[in-house]
């Protein structure tokens, strides 16, 4: 009798303690799992309201001879504060990863744009220019970011905002996390919903695919290896996340083929960006607009050269 009583009490107390601990940590587990999961393909970021500014086109009132024939489209990936740089940001040759630009450098570059009186265009203005419907100042530039790293929010956003600049952020929408995240410069972290909502006055969010920023085992980019239908299905998911904001797309890795372009056209994108290191000029071929990558080893002189050089 005593033994049965003990067994029952022993089991019950174990169940109570165990489930108590489980409930206590339940949220943390749920969080960790949703962090690993892709952003739901049927949900949207709900940023329509705060992206309204992206429809505006400014009047520049330019004289003949002051208009741009071609303009540089800058491409950034990550901006990391100098003090946050650690071993994970270096490649095997001990050089800073190309895609990482130091915040101090980024600040200098933005300062330069500001000092030189550059007009930082939004996507609508750029699109009108590239379609030859609109004239922009000779010193015009379009700033873009790829992938949607969290540091774009924590590091680049305040700098851009302080100069009143805007930029296009091509985000892999499936990688956006629903939960708020703690910034950790050592990790590959992407925008959280919170970050997107709190930076949509500066960033114009466009797609970098839903979850096709990947390569197959033999190294082919998904946009090249997957069928047209698969690409279109991925892009549709992404546009669902982005409230159907489908002006532009940047091809992951700058890789694409005929089929990929057809998919992009079918969906109805107006313009698509690649990476070619030359300036963009009005053209009929607006599904292969070149961009200039700004990399970790660019000095301010290199930056100037990329902006103002004849290429």
């Amino acid at each position: 009798m005593k033994r049965y009583l003990f067994n029952i009490i022993f089991l019950m107390s174990f169940i109570i303690l165990f489930s108590g601990a489980f409930m206590f940590y339940y949220d943390d587990f749920a969080k960790a799992f949703s962090r690993n999961a892709l952003f739901s393909e049927d949900k949207s970021f709900k940023i329509k309201e705060c992206q309204r500014w992206t429809d505006d086109i400014r009047e520049f009132n330019l004289m003949i001879g002051e208009t741009a024939e071609k303009i540089p489209v800058l491409m950034y990936h990550r901006i990391i504060d100098d003090s946050d740089i650690s071993d994970v940001h270096f490649n095997e040759n001990n050089n800073l990863l190309e895609t990482v630009v130091l915040k101090s450098e980024f600040e200098k570059q933005m300062q330069y744009l500001h000092d030189e009186g550059y007009a930082v265009l939004n996507l609508q203005e750029f699109l009108s220019f590239i379609k030859n419907e609109f004239e922009v100042p000779e010193k015009s530039v379009l700033i873009t970011f790829d992938d949607g790293f969290k540091d774009n929010f924590t590091e680049a956003y305040p700098v851009l905002k302080s100069y009143g600049f805007t930029a296009v952020d091509f985000i892999v929408t499936g990688l956006v996390s629903e939960q708020k995240t703690e910034y950790d410069p050592r990790e590959f972290q992407y925008f959280s919903l919170h970050d997107i909502k709190n930076s949509c006055d500066v960033f114009q969010f466009q797609t970098h695919t839903y979850n096709f920023h990947q390569r197959t085992e033999d190294g082919k980019a998904f946009l090249v290896s997957k069928s047209k239908e698969e690409i279109k299905s991925d892009l549709k998911k992404s546009l669902q996340n982005l409230n159907n904001a489908k002006i532009a797309i940047a091809y992951p890795y700058g890789s694409y083929d005929k089929e990929a372009i057809e998919a992009v056209k079918d969906i109805g994108f107006n313009v698509a960006f690649t990476v070619q290191g030359i300036k963009a000029k009005p053209s009929k071929d607006i599904y292969e607009v070149p961009r200039i990558a700004i990399t970790s080893d660019d000095s301010i002189g290199d930056f100037r050269q990329k902006l103002e050089g004849e290429h």
């Binding site: 303690l17 165990f18 601990a21 206590f24 940590y25 587990f29 960790a32 962090r35 703690e182 990790e187």
Partner: peptide, 19 residues
Amino acid sequence: LSPQYYMISLGLFTITYIL
């Protein structure tokens, strides 16, 4: 290397401890 799992580890530790 991945501090976002602190709570998970703590959770597993607590359960292991009770066990």
